[in-house]
Structures are given as C-alpha cells and as structure tokens.
Design a protein around this nucleic acid. Structure first.
Ligand SMILES: [Zn+2]
Ligand SMILES: [Zn+2]
Ligand SMILES: [Zn+2]
Ligand SMILES: [Zn+2]
Lengths: 146, 146
DNA sequence: CCTTGAAGCTATAGTTGCTAGAGACATTAA
DNA sequence: TTAATGTCTCTAGCAACTATAGCTTCAAGG
C-alpha cells in the first residue's frame, strides 16, 4: 500500500490533485491507515494512471469520468468510448486549425514591424484593426481551454 | 454615445464582459447617463476592439494590459510591444507542437480500435498505458489555456 | 400619460482543473 | 527525543469570463 505522496510520485500527479480527484468522485474514497492517512493499492494506481494519461491527451474530467464508467463494463460495446475519443480528436483538430491561423497572423505582425516607435508599430496597428489581418481567425463560438 | 448593449454589439463583446473589463481596469470607468447607465464614445470603442482582437489572437489580459499601456506612449520604442507579440507567437507554436502530437495519438487510438467490446477496446487500452503510444506527448511543464 | 417589455444596474456565485495556504496531527530518521 | 517531513481538513485563489437575482431605467405603443 502506498501513501498519497508515493502514489503521486509513481503516477506523476501532485498530491493535492489526487485529493481533488477523490473529492469530485473521480477516484473512490481511499482506505485509511490507523492514523487516518490515505492508502492506495494497485487498482487505485491504475485508475490514476488512466486519468493522468487521458488528461495528457486533453480529455476533460467529464469525458474521463464517462470513459472510466465505460471501462467498468467489459462486456458492453465500446462504441461510446470510441465516440468520446473521436470527439476529442475533432476538438483537437479544430484547435489546431485555429492555432495555425493565429500563428500565421502573429508571424505576419512580427515580421512586418520595422521596429521603430510605437506610433509606427505594426503590431499595435494590426491589433487595433482586424481588417489588416490576412485570415479570419476570430473566435467562431465557444472554444474552451487546454 | 453608445449604451453598453450597442457597444457590445458593435465590438462583438458580450455586455457582462465589458463590465468585467472595466472592473479589472482594462477599460476606464465609463461616463454615465443621468440614469446611471454607461455611455461610450469612439475612444472606448477602439480600445475595446483592440482588446477583443488581441484576445482573438490569444493574448492574455495581462499582455493586453501591457500592450495598451505601451500604445499610449507613441514616441517610445516598440521593442517591448514586439517582444510581447513574439512571446505570444512562441506560446502558440508550442501549443501547436503539443496538439499535433495529441492529434497523432488520438488518430492512432481511434483507427486501431476494431470496435468490439470494451474489454478489447484499443481506446481504453491505450488510455491505460502510455507505453502503447508512439510519441511522448506528455505535459512538459506548465502549458496554459486557450 | 401609462404601461409593458427590454435593457441596464449591482452584487454574488459558478465554471474548469487545479494550486496554495493555514493550522493541526502522523510518521520517520537521527 | 526531537526535528523534519508528510499528511490531514478547510478555505481561498488563478484565468477569463458567464450566469443569476433583484432591482432601476428607458423606449415604444396604446
Ligand atoms: Zn513594433
Ligand atoms: Zn485579425
Ligand atoms: Zn473501441
Ligand atoms: Zn501516451
């Protein structure tokens, strides 16, 4: 059995994050030692590794919650799990598209500035006027974090 | 003079967001009508458009605050502004690199799954074991939102 | 002139996914 | 034994908004 610190080390997850996952019900309540400290076995370790890996791949905690529920029913079809992964892929692709446009605009701005005074700075100028942009990079609707 | 609603419409910024920007000091306190409602002129409009455009390009509010301060001193060198833009470009490039790796892993997962039962699902399997991944896509350090 | 509905006001709390602190108890090594 | 580290709970904070509640103000129609 591992203490929370050892578990965090093993899974490369910070201790408060583990407690947070327990608090929101993503990890089950841990066993406790005589002195009330959390103790973890191999199952908890695997579950945490799954969460960590899915987070590294950009899945939200909600998606991970669903994936974990699904993974508990081995006999069921994996269509739902695959759908979550495909949705995540689509999300990543849309962010990629957006970031690619941003990169182009930022490069243009930076390259075009001759580096004189603020009054003539192309960076400031472009930021004040989207019509100087080459692409329409604007926020389409709600695109969230990561 | 525009009411907050008209300003928001014109700049495509939601009304509560405008009030929020004022609250955090990104926009100056607006003039008020006899009935205590905010009124905006062309200068406020331009400032808000600048903020909105910079946000669309992924700049943080902190960076925008600095850019706005700089833009108020037309005689000074634009080196600092250019540096902020270059830092933002670097940030976008690093996010792009990470997302590109994520996309590859997600595609691999989704393609490899034959679509049977959860017990045999490649998506679930890979999420549980990073060593099945082709690249090291893991969170390097602190990479923030957008 | 009056009413109704939309738009505005303030203040507070919620979102996501953590992270940081305070103050108390537990465990471990010297 | 004592000091250092680890763990406990609870609360608050981060970015950048968004949503709600309960009010006041305004513009248009009858
Ligand atoms: Zn410049
Ligand atoms: Zn633009
Ligand atoms: Zn599958
Ligand atoms: Zn992996």
């Amino acid at each position: 059995m591992l203490t929370i610190g050892k578990l965090g080390e093993a899974a490369r997850v910070k201790v408060p994050t583990i407690r947070y996952y327990e608090q929101i019900g993503l990890l089950p309540e841990a066993e406790r030692s005589a002195g009330n400290q959390r103790l973890y076995g191999r199952k908890a370790m695997e579950r945490l590794a799954f969460i960590r890996h899915a987070r590294d791949l950009g899945f939200t905690l909600e998606a991970i919650r669903d994936l974990l529920s699904l993974s508990d029913i081995p006999d069921q079809s994996c269509a739902a799990a695959d759908a979550i992964a495909r949705a995540q892929l689509a999300e990543v692709e849309s962010r990629l598209a957006r970031l690619t446009a941003l990169k182009a605009e930022l490069e243009r701005m930076v390259v075009q500035c001759a580096g004189g005074k603020i009054a003539d700075c192309r960076v400031i100028e472009v930021l004040g006027d989207h019509s100087l942009c080459a692409t329409d990079h604007r926020h389409p609707e709600t695109e969230l974090a990561q």
